[in-house]
Design a protein around this nucleic acid. Structure first.
Length: 258
DNA sequence: ATGGTGGCCCGGCCA
C-alpha cells in the first residue's frame, strides 16, 4: 500500500498538477493539506474519475484537509470529534485499507509570542488526547501531514535562522516527541537517515534551487505500520516546474499485512 | 537586505 501526504497550498490552484501526479505516482491513500476550499467546492467527482474515493474537511479561504483512497474510505471523522471543537479545519480521519488514517495540518504558530503559537501547542495536545482516547499504538494508525515542526536540526538547512522562531522550538519538539512516545514512528526516517532531506522550501529567495528547506511533512505510523515500511521518499519533482506548491509530497510504501 | 514569492481575492492577511 502506497500512502502519501502533500500540502498543496490551494487545491484550486494545484488541481492539474495533483491529477497528473496521482496518475504518475499511483498512491493508494493520499492526505492533502491546505486545500483552501469549502466542502461544497471539493472536486470529489474528478478524483472519482481517477479511481479515488475522497473526504474533505474545509472552511473555504484557509486551511482544509482531505483524504483520497482507492483502498476503501470509511468511518470519516472531521476534527477532534463531536465533543472537542476546533475553530479551523485542520484534521480529518478515515479508515483506508485497514489503516486508521489522519490528514493533519498543524497550525503554523507564526511567532513564539503569538496567540497562534499557543494554539499550535494546544492543538498538538488535543491530537495526542484524541489518539489516547480513540486509537491504540498496537493497531495500524497513520497520522500524516504538515506538522510545521522540523523534528531535529538535521531536518533544517540552517538551524541558526530558526533560533527564537517557530518550527524548531523546544516546546514544539516536545509536543512532537509526545506523539512519538505515544507510539508513532517517523516512518520516512526509518529508511532515510541522512541530513539535508527536506519537504518544504520557501517560495522566496530561490530556496528550493539552493536546497535550503525543512522537513516538516511527516508520515507518522504506529509499530504495526512501521514494521511494514518498504520504501519512503520525498517527491522533489513535484516541487519543480510551473506553479508548484511550496511543499513536496512524502511517499511511504507498506508491505502487505502478513 | 527585517526583504523576498505566492495563495487567498483585490487590501492585507497568511504561509
Amino acid at each position: 500500500m502506497r500512502i502519501a501526504t502533500w500540502n498543496v497550498n490551494s487545491l484550486k490552484a494545484r488541481m492539474e498538477r495533483v491529477e497528473s501526479w496521482l496518475v504518475d505516482v499511483a498512491p493508494d491513500v493520499v492526505c492533502l493539506q491546505e486545500t483552501k476550499l469549502a466542502d461544497g467546492a471539493f472536486p470529489h467527482m474528478a478524483f472519482q474519475a481517477l479511481g479515488y474515493e475522497s473526504a474533505h474537511h474545509g472552511e473555504g479561504r484557509w486551511n482544509g484537509v482531505a483524504i483520497l483512497s482507492r483502498v476503501g474510505l470509511s468511518d470519516v471523522v472531521a476534527g477532534f470529534g463531536p465533543d472537542h471543537s476546533d475553530p479551523e479545519a485542520r484534521l480529518l480521519w478515515a479508515t483506508c485499507g485497514g489503516v486508521r488514517v489522519a490528514s493533519a495540518y498543524v497550525p503554523n504558530g507564526r511567532a513564539l509570542d503569538h496567540d497562534h503559537y499557543r494554539y499550535k501547542l494546544a492543538w498538538l495536545a488535543e491530537l495526542l488526547r484524541m489518539l489516547d482516547e480513540h486509537e491504540s499504538p498496537r493497531s495500524p494508525v497513520v497520522v500524516a501531514g504538515d506538522f510545521n515542526i522540523a523534528p531535529t536540526d538535521a531536518d533544517v538547512w540552517d538551524p541558526a535562522q530558526f533560533v527564537d522562531a517557530t518550527h524548531t522550538s523546544e516546546a514544539e519538539r516536545d509536543a512532537l516527541d509526545a506523539l512519538i512516545s505515544w507510539g508513532l514512528v517517523d516512518t520516512f526516517r526509518l529508511l532515510n537517515p541522512d541530513p539535508g532531506l527536506y519537504s518544504w522550501w520557501d517560495y522566496r529567495a530561490g530556496r528550493f534551487h539552493k536546497h535550503e528547506g525543512m522537513r516538516i511533512d511527516l508520515v507518522l505510523g504506529t509499530a504495526p505500520v512501521a514494521e511494514r515500511v518498504s520504501f519512503a521518499t520525498i517527491d522533489r519533482n513535484a516541487r519543480k516546474g510551473q506553479q508548484p506548491s511550496d511543499h513536496a509530497p512524502v511517499i511511504v510504501d507498506l508491505n502487505p499485512t502478513p
